[in-house]
Structure formats: C-alpha cells, structure tokens
Design a protein around this nucleic acid. Structure first.
Length: 803
RNA sequence: GCGAAAGUGGCGGAAUUGGCAGACGCGCUGGACUUAGGAUCCAGUGAGGAUAACUCAUAGGGGUUCAAGUCCCCUCUUUCGCACCA
C-alpha cells in the first residue's frame, strides 16, 4: 500500500520545483507555436484572494498547462491592477503610504497564488503603480492627447460625496456610487474626456472578427447603442424671428404625424427665444426643477409625463408647413441626440402619453388595425405601410425612410444621421493613488503635454493625501509639484492635479506582459510580432461594458498609430460565473457566507480546491459553494493516488472496458470548451471503471495523469514520477487520441416498440437493420407481434412499430 | 417597457444537439471493517406500484414526430443586461 497522500509536503515540493526552477518562464521562440492565455489581473485588496479569483484563474490555468503539454510556447502572465480607491482609503485610515499598502498586498497575493500552484510567468509580473509601468500609461495618454482624443470640457458630473470622487456614468448607475453605495450628486466640473465615441463604429464592427460569447457581444452592442435615422430641422417662430432647431429621429418616415415639438429643459434655444415666451417664469421654474432632479430620478419617474407648453412660440413642420406647438419636458434628454424631438404620438408610447396628457392631436401615419386615438401603434416588424403622408403614401416603412431622407435633403431640411448611446469616457479622478495626468497648463500656450523623455511624471511624495472637500485633487495641495514651467515657452505653468481612473492601467497591460521590462517601448515591437493577439482571455461579466470596451478602444487607437498590428486585442473571450455562498446568495461579509481559500487549502490542499472549483458546475453560470461537495473531489484524488496499489503489467489486464482514446477526446474537448465539470466527471468515471475491474495498466495511469495534470498538477506530478522512475510530467507530452479507435467493437442499444422502451440488445458496432432485427426477435422482445415499420438509427436506437 | 438566457431528483448539475432522461458528485438508506467514525469499502437511491408487470415524470398547457428535456405555439416563473435612447 502506498502511503497516505501528504498534500502539504508534496504540494510544497512541486511548487519549489516550479517556482525556484522558473519553469513557466518563456521566451519568444520562432520554432514553437505560441499561445497567449490571459486572466484579468487582480486588484490586490487587503483581504487577499477570494474563491471567485480561483474560479476565474483556474480555467486559463488548465488551458495553459494543457497547451504546454501539447508543446505550445505558452505566455500566461500575472500582474496587479494596483491603483485605486480601496488602497488609498485604507492607507489614509491606517496612516500609511499607499505604496506600502500596495506592496504588502501584492506580496500576500503572490504567496497565495503560488500556494495554489498556478503556472504564471512570474518574471513578467507587472504592477500598474510601478513608475516603469505608468510611464507608458502616461505615454499613451499623451498620444491620445496629441491626436485630439483627450480633451477637457465643463460638464455636470456624478460626484460621490462619500468617496469624494467624480464617477463615470458606468460607476454611478441608478444614482448610487459603485463603490460605497452612497447617493451621487451632480456637480459642475472641468473634466478630461477620452473620445471613445470616435471609435464607436470600429468597436462595433470589430466584434464580428472575434470569438466572444454572444451575450458579451450583445451587451457591448447595447452599450454602444448605435441607431440610424435623420436630423431634421424645424423652424421655431418666436415673434418675428425664426430659429432653426434640429431634432434627431430614427423614424423620419413618420414626420407627417409629428404634431408637436419637445425640447429638453436644458436646450439652449430656450434662452435665445425667452423674450417671446409668454409664460417664461413657469418655464424657468420647470428648468430649475429638472436641474435638481438627478438623471436617474428623471428616468425612474418616467411613468408620469410632465412638461409645459411654450406660450407664444410655434414651430413649423417642414413637410406639412403647419404650425405645431412647442413644449419643454424632462422626458427628453439633452445628452442624447440633439436634445429636441419631433413627437409622433400615434406611433410612440412616450409621445402618445404626453399627447393624451395635454390633449394634442394624434395623426396616424402607419396603417394598422389599432385605433391610435386609444393606444399608440408601435411598428416593430418593418412591414407597415405609410398613410396620410403625401410624399410616401403606400410605401413600406424601410423604403419610406430612405425616400423621406432623400426628400428632406432636397428640401434642405434634413440629412441622414447615425447616433450612439455611448458617451465619451470621463478620464480623471480627484484622488492621489492614480497615474498623474501628464499635462501642464500654461497661460500662454494652453494645455501642453510634458515631453516624453521626462516620463514618468512621478506622483509627488506627500504626507497628507486625503481628499479635499471641494472635489479638487489632493495633488493640488502640493504646490512644489503643481508649480512648474511650461515645456514650450519656459514660463510659469501649473500641472494637472487630477489622476487617471483605475481603468487606465488595465486598458493595455496585456501588451506590457510581452516585454515587461522594456525601457524604450510600451511594448517591444519584436516581442509583439511574436505574441500578437491574446489567444484566449477569461474574465468576469461585470467588465464587459467597461474594461473590455476600454481596452479594445486603446488597442484600436494603438493600432491606428502603429504601435500594434492587430486591431482587436483578444481573439477569444470567456467569462466565469460567480461563486455564491453556500446559501445561494452572493458572498459578502455582512451575510457571513464568505469562503476563505486559505482555510480550504489548509484542510484539503491546492489540488482538491482546484478540482472542486472546476467541478462545481457549469463554468459560465453562477454556482453555490458546497462545503460537502468538496469531499467528493478529495475522494476522487485519493482514489487516483490509490491507482499505484493496483498497478499490474499490461499483459495481465483486460482493459477493453475503458476506451482511452474516447477519454482523451472527451477531456481535451471539454477543456477547450470550458466544460471542466464534465471533463472531471469523465475522469471519475474512468477511475470507477478501473476500480471495479480491480487492476490498472501503466499506460492508463499515465494517460489519466496527463489528462488530470492541468487540473491537479501536484498529485499528478508526484504519481507520474513514482510510476515512471522519477520522470517529470512537465517533460511529457499530452496524449493524442486515435480517431479510428473511438468506437468499441460492440454496443448496447435500446429497443423501442411503439416508441416505448421494451428492452436492450447488444450488437456488433455498425450492424445493419436486418441483423439487429434478428437479435431483437431472438430475444423474444417482439412477443409475436406483426412488424409494420422499423426505424433504425445505426448504433443508436431501434424503434419498431408493430401490432 | 425592450433585449438575452434559463426553468430537469433532496442538492450541484449531465444528456453525443431529435434517439435509453437523471452521467458524475453531494446527501440519504442499508451492510462490511472497526474501541470509534465526520475514514474506507460494498449495495441501493426520480415518483407511484405487492419493490412484480407496468405506469407517471424535464415549470404548466397544447402541437409536430416512429421518437421531444431538446423543435413550434400559448401561459407562468427566475436571472442578467439595457432603459423616457427619440
């Protein structure tokens, strides 16, 4: 009998072999095919690794180890996305420097990751807060600035009074701060933006060139929110003057049904025509109220339409030349389209609600069975036919749209227009622990990027980097650093005191891994030409509309300026599901259902933890942690260990019950498709077969060891070396299956009579219908019935229709 | 409201894409070995039925088919994403 498996000692032994020997480090080797597998690098929080990380990393860990055994040159790097608020807040609270906090957190993460046995290329570790890294984050910002893709503009921003930081729209959904959950308020500020909207089209079209799950593509498409339509100019009559107001519509074909115009409360035209607005005080009051409603409130209170007519003001429908009333209403948003709409109540729910509330005319322009006076008819299938629309009567909607746009162009009142929901990326934060924005403000020269040879622009050393109450950056308190000279004219100038958002460093880290120590390039061109695209990137669904879009944007920009040669950074993307607490709820400290991986490691060891996290369920779906379930994986691995006790020379073993070729095909294929749970289930079944047979061959142990090695590398390394006189499993080759040997000689198939299961017969593989029927009769399954019809699916099933 | 995905034993989940529903694991029941069992091994385990034949079972209802968890129609539920987007 083999000794009990001492996971503590054996896991330590192999980790030493891997990490001291640096065996996962790779160099560009043109003779070997490369494989670049990437995980989302962690934020090194003080609480350390959680089980969610382990699920997220384990998929690419399995793929990386498997690809190495399959003789690929595998780049599987690790790093830390270490700028950010929690570290800074913790540093302030504990009166330490964030640098110190970050370093000790990173150290802890590294120890934990190594104790799980991950096969990262440790020599390539990057840290976004390292000046040698953020030098290049700043460099990319300067390139964006030089191309006019970084600009500063005054806007109202979402401000979290708790974190004292400006938030992007993505970080303040539903009007609450993403981080602390407190209510966001609106504040007027100068804000840096990156013109991601300029890349909306290529971000959209690029999706067709990559292998992302459909749900991820859909989410990104929705986020970008492309719509096509037209801009149409209405003239507003204000006293003796006419003012053009442009509306955006996706349905220019319905313009004959446009019976009123609605302006957003913020629309600038209101100020221009205010002398002719007879009920101006009422309007000003409404504007004021709208301003105090936060954006999310305007959205949430959408049930009731409010608005006020502009008395004394009219607009002209440019197609009918009829006068129509003009309203201001907060259901129209200033930041989408043009901030003004033509309302077509017959065919738009919101316009219809508004028209009903204000007693406005409703004119049907698309034929339907619906009485549009009673409910709006919203066209969905593009099959409607236009009515009451002189220029386009009788046309189906799609043709009506293009004809109408054409007519509008002739009349000079409209033109085609494409719009996007996605807004430019607010790119600054008023915090200390981030990359300083490398721009100097000079009274004479304006905004001047600091010369590239002066990068990195280091964060100044400060004693007190707590946030200010007035929403300006802590860096503004550091006057020595703020006051500088203009790189162009040499005159006095001041530095930008804001820092970049946390998304900055993570937008290009996958490139830095290729040449993490290069001083001359963000990414070394030679290294890039070898590693190129990330072959497979796994991460969370929560990053699909932020990090994944931002980093695609940066990569596309770097492609445009010739830094990289692939337009898309990631060839394939997968996403793991959440690990929930044992109660099926999201893990959280307040619920007390958090599983600490260190405890699991202590009780079961790394291999069991790794196996279980992959066996727990469908990789892409959420799965509750099961404290009992993990025991099944522990038993599985100890049964695997016990294989050595029943090892017999090949000639004494009848192994016709186990098809190794099929096993290889299933396991390999399941790994490639993220079906880790079923891959492990197949290996369990193989062990069940072997143990019920009672003996095992060396070939079987070796095949199973190699198949299982990516999941449980320690125990398989050990057993492989025991069985093979000290040979190293990482020098072995992953097994290949023989396609000719996938089918067994005989197969048992079900026999159905009248569609009901009535028995089973064992047949030679590939038998024809006659011989199967003969077997069926032989076994008396027909019971003297008359056969009317037989449906036989080869090697699968036979169904007999009989009386 | 719009869009997407999903609903299978006590639980996590399988099902070669229309072909034996419940693989694999947990849990549970009985047994063996044990001073002991939160160790290990063996057997059983969807429900009903005399533990037999058989019948019923994949959210509910209808349909297509020799054959439906899988395809079609309707209803319900859940999760996720987007949301006064013009």
């Amino acid at each position: 009998m083999a000794k009990d498996y001492d996971f503590k000692a054996i896991e330590k032994k192999w980790q030493n072999y891997w990490y001291k020997g640096n065996i996962f480090e790779v160099t560009e080797d043109p003779n070997k095919e490369k494989f670049y597998s990437l995980i989302e690098f962690p934020y090194p929080s003080g609480s350390g690794l959680h089980v969610g990380h382990i699920r997220a990393f384990s998929s690419m860990e399995v793929i990386s180890r498997k690809k190495r055994l399959q003789q690929y040159n595998v780049l599987f790097p690790i790093g830390y996305d270490a700028f950010g608020l929690p570290t800074e807040n913790y540093a302030i609270k504990t009166k330490q420097h964030p640098r110190k906090v970050t370093d000790s957190n990173i150290k802890k993460f590294e120890e934990q990751l190594k104790s799980i046995g991950y096969s990262f290329c440790w020599d390539r570790t990057v840290d976004t807060t390292d000046p040698s890294y953020y030098k290049w984050t700043q460099w990319i910002f300067i390139q964006l600035f030089k191309k006019g893709l970084a600009y500063k503009s005054k806007t109202t921003v979402n401000f979290c009074p708790e974190c004292k930081v400006v938030l992007a729209n993505e970080e303040s959904q539903n009007g609450v701060c993403d981080r602390c959950g407190s209510e966001v308020i609106q504040k007027e500020k100068d804000v840096w933006f990156l013109k991601i909207r300029d890349y909306a089209e290529t971000l959209l079209s690029g999706l067709s060139t990559v292998n992302f799950p459909e749900r991820i593509k859909t989410e990104q498409e929705n986020w970008i929110g492309k719509s096509t339509g037209a801009e149409v100019t209405f003239q507003i009559i204000s006293g003796d003057d006419q003012h053009p107001v442009v509306v955006y519509t996706t349905r220019p074909d319905t313009i004959y049904g446009a019976t009123f115009l609605v302006l957003s409360p913020e629309h600038p035209i209101i100020h221009a025509i205010e002398e002719n607005i007879q009920n101006l005080p009422e309007i000003l009051d409404y504007q004021d109220k709208a301003r105090h409603k936060k954006e999310f409130e305007r959205v949430q209170l959408s049930k009731e339409k409010t608005g006020i007519i502009l008395k004394g003001i009219k607009a002209i429908n440019p197609l009918t030349n009829k006068e129509i009333p003009v309203f201001v209403a907060d259901y129209v948003m200033m930041d989408y389209g043009t901030g003004a709409i033509m309302a077509v109540p017959a065919h738009d729910k919101r316009d219809w609600d508004f028209a009903k509330a204000f007693g406005l005319p409703i004119i049907e322009v698309i034929k339907s069975d619906v009485d549009v006076q009673k409910e709006p008819y919203v066209e969905k299938n593009d099959k409607g036919i236009m009515v009451n629309s002189p220029l386009i009567n009788g046309l189906p909607v799609p043709e009506a749209i293009s004809k109408m746009i054409h007519e509008m162009e002739i009349l000079g009142v409209g033109k085609p227009k494409t719009d996007y929901k996605m807004k430019d990326w607010a790119f600054n934060r008023q915090r200390y622990w981030g990359e300083p924005i490398p721009i100097v403000n000079c009274k004479k020269c304006g905004q001047v990027p600091i010369p590239e040879e002066q990068l990195p622009l280091l964060l100044p050393e400060m004693k007190d980097f707590s946030p200010t109450d007035d929403a300006s950056s802590p860096l503004s308190k550091c006057s020595d650093w703020v006051n500088t000279v203009c790189p162009i004219c040499g005159g006095p100038a001041t530095r930008e005191t804001d820092t970049m958002p946390q998304w900055a460093g993570s937008s290009w880290y996958f490139l830095r891994y290729m040449s993490p120590k290069d001083d001359n390039f963000a990414v070394n061109p030679e290294a890039y030409s070898y590693w190129g695209q990330v072959d497979w990137y796994n991460g969370g669904m929560e990053h699909v509309t932020r990090h994944l879009i931002y980093s695609r944007f940066w990569n596309q920009f770097l492609y445009d300026i010739g830094v990289v040669t692939n337009k898309e950074p990631y060839a394939r993307r997968s996403a793991q599901g959440l690990i929930l607490g044992a109660d099926g709820e999201k893990m959280s400290k307040s619920r007390g259902n958090v599983v600490n991986p260190d405890d699991v490691l202590k009780d079961y060891g790394a291999d069991v933890l790794r196996t279980f996290i992959l066996f727990i369920g469908d990789y892409e779906k959420p799965a509750p942690w099961s404290p009992d379930g993990i025991k099944g994986c522990q038993r599985f691995l100890s049964r695997y260990w016990a294989l050595q006790d029943i090892l017999k020379p090949d000639k004494y073993v009848d192994n016709s019950d186990l098809n190794l070729d099929l096993l290889i095909k299933k396991v390999d294929g399941d790994y490639e498709n993220c079906k880790f749970n079923t891959a492990i289930a197949f290996l369990m079944t193989a062990l069940n077969t072997i143990f019920s047979r009672g003996c095992v061959t060396k070939k079987e142990i070796n095949t199973i060891s190699l198949l299982l090695n990516p999941v449980a590398p320690h125990i398989t390394s050990e057993l492989f070396s025991i069985i093979n006189d000290g040979a190293m499993i990482d020098k072995a080759v992953f097994p290949k299956y023989n396609p000719d040997k996938l089918v067994m000689d005989s197969v048992e198939i079900p026999v159905q009579i009248m569609g009901k299961l009535r028995g089973k017969v064992v047949i030679q593989t590939g038998s024809d219908e006659e011989s199967v029927m003969a077997t069926v009769k032989e076994q008396g399954l027909l019971d003297g019935k008359t056969v009317l019809k037989v449906i036989y699916v080869k090697d699968r099933i036979i169904n007999i229709i009989a009386k």
